[in-house]
Design a protein around this nucleic acid. Structure first.
Lengths: 327, 327
DNA sequence: CTAGGTGCAAATAATTTGCAGAGGC
DNA sequence: GCCTCTGCAAATTATTTGCACCTAG
């Protein structure tokens, strides 16, 4: 949906290159953080460089939106604001009606619900607007939180992507540990143990990466959450684990594992692809790949186990039994 | 949040009463369904009554918003639209970018997430805007769905409120049936059985009411969902049932039941209070009351059981055991 | 030289407002 | 007769556009 990282140079106005007014406006825009209105931007531009007309600012903004550098947002104030889109995933907004500041968040849970609702209404969604209007913490308490500038946004996003991956990994580990514990077939047990070990190892890698990321910015951990996830991929494995409790044979456990890994893989891949180039994107895609490997292993094992069982007992004994009962 | 059903008569312009232009504008506005822009309304008004100025329409709209008769909504088109607020709960929007139509939905799940996010960001939310932009089914398939006019909206809302109550009731029934099945104490079993029976009976009442509602409008069941719920109160009982599977004594089962009923009661009460006078509101509030009765019964039984157990075994044996281990 | 960017002022579009007159109680 | 509503036209606000001019390649 989001266009890929634009090649800024190719989008530069063909005519002017260095001292073009457009470049100066762009420069001011990219430097400032938050959501500016056209007039805000005009004021800022004219403060550091006279001789730029309001119309130029408007035209430059139009060009930036078209080029994928900026996004036009509407906070219901009767005019539009603009936010940087470059290396900045699509997100939702918290809008303070008192100080007119706005902060951003992303929620895979909200997005999942929106998709569900759109599907239920036979609606082909292209974009969602989610805004929470109210009063921000600063306006009520007076304290100012750590401001989030451009590079920090990317770090926070990477942090949250890692948190999400770690949560999923933990759930996966728990799932495989349980599956190994209740496996009947010795080879099945070995597979689950192997997967549990792998998840554990990968969990370690992710946690190490998380620590490294946090080490680079001591305040990073205390910064507000940007990416909210709850029912995401970690929820899949949690669901799977609950199903395991209900019992079932190794084949079923493998099937549940396959479902979880597939869902998880697709989830991370889809999100990863949606984001613009950033560490967060990379984390998503790497994790998706990891899940794909597990998925393939599980499928192989499932086939192998079924083949082995097929020698002694009929395949799908449950279905066969049900059929007998019906007759 | 929404103001209560306004007393229209008291809000009538003190001056004009019968043929006041304001009344004529209001009349046209209330008659039309959907989301009109000021200009739309002006056109409609002037079509059936000449001699009303554009400014009057604007002023009347302002007055209607202030009086809680209309809500101003912003679909990002560069102008505002207005929707009736009278007997019409706050909701979210699906907006077709092709035909500029818009339909409405409500999702307790989305709302719950928004609350969570606002809380995590230390943000005092007053209102949420959720819009799904895209292409509607009609625009893609050409078919027109059953149009939803004023009274139908209320019916659909009542239908969905009933569906939600029924889903909760079913979950509750399942929960109590399971609890009764695994109860150890004979009196505990009786209580759970009684509650299961009550839920079953009430479920029957709700289903009957549902059938009656549907009988009044044969198309009602096929109309698109307005109220989406998933993790709502029915989810609470489902969670509770899962906890029961893990085992535990009767006291714990009672505690889980108390938690579920309390959550469910608060949920329905809160939503019911939020809505404007309508059958849906009534269903919510009645159901909340039902849950409160169960809650009280459970609390009484919990106390009684603990008192009885206190005679033979020490209270909270689990905690005592854990303490011993620690020492 | 030429395509495009730019300034300026005028045009639009949605909405509000000042003010004189009208209408109901 | 008073108070509020209304109409009309002018004002406001955000944004776009026509057009002549300028500028880099």
């Amino acid at each position: 949906m989001d266009r890929q990282l634009p090649d800024l140079s190719s989008l530069r106005p063909a005519g002017g290159k260095r001292s073009s007014k457009r470049d100066r406006v762009l420069n001011v825009f990219l430097r400032q953080e938050g959501h500016v209105s056209a007039d805000d931007l005009f004021e800022r531009v004219r403060r550091e460089a006279a001789g730029i007309a309001r119309a130029t600012v408007y035209r430059t903004l139009q060009w930036m939106v078209g080029a994928g550098i900026a996004r036009k947002v509407d906070f219901g104030e009767g005019r539009f604001r603009f936010e940087p889109a470059y290396r900045h995933p699509r997100h939702f907004h918290l809008i303070c009606t008192r100080c007119h500041s706005s902060s951003e968040f992303l929620s895979t849970d909200v997005e999942a619900l929106m998709e569900e609702i759109a599907a239920a209404r036979n609606f082909a969604a292209t974009q969602s607007v989610v805004q929470i209007h109210g009063t921000c913490g600063e306006c009520r308490t007076g304290r100012k939180p750590a401001p989030i500038d451009g590079p920090t946004t990317e770090l926070v996003f990477a942090r949250d992507a890692l948190r999400m991956a770690i949560a999923t990994e933990r759930s996966g580990l728990e799932f495989y540990a349980r599956a190994a514990g209740q496996a009947k077939d010795p080879r099945g047990r070995t597979v689950f143990q192997k997967l549990a070990a792998e998840e554990g190892e990968h969990l370690g890698t992710l946690e190490k990466r998380y620590r490294q990321l946090v080490a680079g910015d001591p305040q990073l951990e205390s910064r507000p959450t940007f990416l909210f996830f709850k029912g995401a991929a970690s929820g899949l494995f949690a669901e799977g684990a609950k199903e395991l409790i209900k019992g079932g044979d190794d084949l079923q456990a493998l099937l549940i594992g396959i479902r979880c890994e597939r869902g998880s893989h697709e989830f991370f891949k889809r999100y990863g692809e949606r984001f613009e180039d950033s560490e967060g994107k990379q984390i998503f895609l790497e994790f998706a790949d990891e899940e794909r490997v597990h998925l393939e292993l599980l499928i192989r094992e499932y086939r192998a186990l079924r083949a082995r069982q097929g020698q002694s007992t009929p395949a799908r004994p449950a279905v066969a039994a049900r059929r007998q009962r019906r007759r």
